[in-house]
C-alpha cells in the first residue's frame, strides 16, 4: 500500500506538529494503518474538545457578540428612521411655508386689485358726475339761448309788421298821394301776411 509504506518511511515530522508527532506515532502504533478519520481511539478526545470549544463559542456568541452586533444594527436602523422622520418633518415645514407665502401673495394681489378697482370706480363716478354737471350747465345755457332767440325772433317779427305798415303807407303816399290811416295799413299788411 502506497499510503502505509509512505507513512512508515516517514523520517521527519511536519514542522507544525513538532516533536510530539514521533510520540504519537509510537502511541498509535496499534492503529497505524487505520485511516485517521476512522480511528475510533481519537473520538473521545475530539468530542470532548469539540464540546468545550464549540460550547464556549456558542455561549460567547449568544450572550456577548450577537447581542452587540444586533444592537449596533438596531441603533443604526433607529437612527436612519429618525433622520428620515426629521427630513419628512422639515419638508412638511418647508411646504407649509411655501403655502403660506403663496396665500399671502394671492391675498396681496387680490387686495391690490380691489384697491385698483375702487380707485377706478371712484374716478369714473367723479368724471360722470362732472360730465353731467357740465351737460346740465350746457343744457341750461342752450335753453336760455333758445329763449333769447325766440324773444328776438318775436320782436323781430313784430318789427317786420311795423316796417311793412310804414313801407306800405309810404308806397301808397308816393303812388297815390295823400295819407293812409295807420290802422288801415296795418290791416292790409296783416291780410297780405296771412
Amino acid at each position: 500500500m502506497f499510503v502505509t509504506t509512505a507513512y512508515a518511511q516517514e523520517a521527519t515530522p511536519a514542522p507544525a506538529e513538532g516533536a510530539a508527532h514521533t510520540e504519537v506515532a509510537a502511541e498509535h502504533g496499534a492503529t497505524q494503518g487505520v485511516f485517521p478519520p476512522f480511528d475510533t481511539s481519537t473520538y473521545a478526545s475530539q468530542l470532548l474538545w469539540l464540546a468545550i470549544s464549540f460550547g464556549l463559542f456558542y455561549l460567547f456568541l449568544k450572550n456577548v457578540a450577537l447581542p452587540r452586533i444586533g444592537g449596533i444594527l438596531e441603533v443604526r436602523r433607529d437612527r436612519i428612521a429618525q433622520d428620515l422622520d426629521q427630513a419628512a418633518r422639515m419638508k412638511a415645514e418647508a411646504d407649509a411655508a411655501v403655502a403660506a407665502y403663496e396665500q399671502e401673495l394671492a391675498e396681496a394681489k387680490a387686495k391690490a386689485n380691489a384697491i385698483g378697482n375702487e380707485a377706478s370706480n371712484v374716478a369714473k363716478a367723479e368724471a360722470e358726475a362732472k360730465r353731467k354737471e357740465v351737460e346740465a350747465g350746457l343744457d341750461q345755457k342752450l335753453a336760455a339761448a333758445e329763449e333769447r332767440i325766440a324773444g328776438i325772433k318775436a320782436s323781430a317779427m313784430s318789427g317786420v309788421g311795423a316796417i311793412a305798415e310804414e313801407t306800405a303807407s309810404a308806397i301808397v303816399e308816393s303812388l297815390v298821394g295823400g295819407t293812409v290811416e295807420r290802422s288801415e295799413a296795418a290791416a292790409a299788411v296783416k291780410a297780405a301776411a296771412e
Partner: peptide, 29 residues
C-alpha cells in the same frame, strides 16, 4: 511523508490526558 496525502489528517497528541481509560488528550485537532 512529503507525498503521503493522508498524513495531514493524522492526529498528534500535544498534551496527553487520560481519564478512566478514556484518551482525552489535547491534540492538534
Amino acid at each position: 511523508m512529503a507525498n503521503d496525502p493522508i498524513h495531514q489528517f493524522h492526529i498528534a497528541k500535544w498534551i496527553p490526558i487520560e481519564v478512566g481509560g478514556l484518551d482525552l488528550s489535547f491534540t492538534n485537532a
